[in-house]
């Protein structure tokens, strides 16, 4: 199903703008992630698509050519996975998964067949007749997905589906969720504040900030060509290099960097992996702390800029805290972006 959103905005009672007018187009079978910090409007947008929240006048939500803006959540034929899963404690796993089909009034044989299919696909066969209360977090997450998928919804909406799980499980379920969504072949929108999660699961990511979409694109495009400093910081943890810009030169506390183009009035950022330890480099810095992370060291540096700076270093040994180093940054790896955006 293709999904077309036009002029979706939300003003909360009291006048707060939760969401500024937003247009989005989601292709059939595409998985789109709404990524952003809390309060950026991503959940509001998802709830408006679901029909759980009413947008301001003038909005249009179109599912495959059908205008559903005035339809209630019950009639939109969506599937939704909630952050807290919202599983019904008074029903078994099977009861939860079959509930949507029961509402549709399907014959019992059809319900059973469809429920068994989804249970097998989500690897829940061993738990089918258990109570919800005895399941682990990961199992509950799969039941929530199975329940949303069983009635064959037109679009699947997921609201922070992994955030209730602990870190180790989250990583594992992230890959599992991606595989399952691809297997179902469904158009899906999922909300997250975790950039790794968005990059791993989504075909396209819409980075949101202060109630609007800051940039939308494939994970790779966002990483390589962020449109604003906010996107660069949020996707790939770019660090700002605060200093005085004079044409194509950036004067930092620890030295002068040559820029690929004049950058007056703009902001210069760099990623940790693009900072090189180079005895002939133009910038001096002092090592503050070194963290060993297995494949590489993460070195905290002071004195190069006003704020802290981190560099990644792979090799068999790293500098010691207190040592002075010289750094270089290749001109083409610097991100020169318009100022503005948050954090």
């Amino acid at each position: 199903m293709t999904l077309t959103l036009t002029n979706i905005a939300k003003t909360f009672p009291g006048g707060t703008k939760g969401l500024l007018p937003t247009d989005l187009e989601i292709a059939k079978g595409e998985i789109l992630s709404l990524l952003g910090p809390s309060g950026c409007g991503k959940s509001t947008l998802l709830r408006i698509i679901a029909g759980l929240e009413t947008p301001d006048a003038g909005a249009r939500i179109v599912f495959d050519g059908e205008d559903v803006t005035q339809q209630s959540v019950e009639t939109r034929k969506i599937g939704m996975v909630f952050q807290s899963y919202a599983l019904f404690p008074n029903m078994s796993v099977r009861g939860n998964i079959g509930y949507g089909l029961k509402i549709q009034g399907l014959p019992k044989a059809d319900i059973d067949r469809r429920v068994n299919e989804v249970i097998a696909l989500c690897r829940l066969t061993d738990y089918a007749d258990r109570a919800i209360t005895v399941l682990s977090g990961g199992q509950r997450q799969r039941v929530a997905l199975a329940r949303a998928m069983a009635p064959r919804p037109r679009v699947l909406l997921l609201d922070e589906p992994l955030s209730a799980l602990d870190a180790a499980l989250r990583g594992q379920l992230r890959d599992e969720l991606r595989l399952l969504l691809r297997q179902f072949g469904i158009t899906a929108i999922f909300v997250t504040h975790d950039q790794d999660e968005a990059m791993a699961i989504a075909d396209r990511v819409a980075v949101m900030s202060l109630g609007e979409v800051a940039q939308i694109g494939t994970p790779e495009a966002l990483y390589r060509n962020p449109a604003t400093g906010f996107v660069a910081r949020f996707v790939g943890d770019a660090m700002p290099l605060p200093g005085r810009i004079e044409g194509d030169q950036l004067h930092l506390q620890g030295g002068v960097l040559n820029l690929p183009e004049p950058a007056d009035g703009k902001e210069v950022l760099v990623r940790a992996e693009d900072i090189r330890i180079d005895p002939t480099g133009p910038i001096t810095a002092r090592v503050e702390a070194v963290t060993f992370l297995g494949t590489h060291y993460r070195i905290a540096l002071a004195g190069a800029t006003e704020g802290p700076l981190f560099a990644l270093h792979s090799g068999l040994s790293a500098a010691k805290p207190g040592e002075n180093l010289r750094l270089s940054i290749a001109a083409e790896s610097l991100l020169i972006l318009p100022k503005g955006g948050t954090t």
């Binding site: 959540v73 019950e74 034929k77 019904f88 008074n90 949507g100 329940r147 949303a148």
Partner: peptide, 27 residues
């Protein structure tokens, strides 16, 4: 968490009356 449970039921197509008898009363 009645609100979320009901939103869950509504997203599966259950109207107010069904939500009351299927979700609210049993719980």
């Amino acid at each position: 968490d009645l609100t979320t449970l009901e939103e869950g039921a509504a997203s599966l197509g259950a109207g107010p009356l069904r939500r009351f008898f299927d979700i609210v009363v049993p719980n």
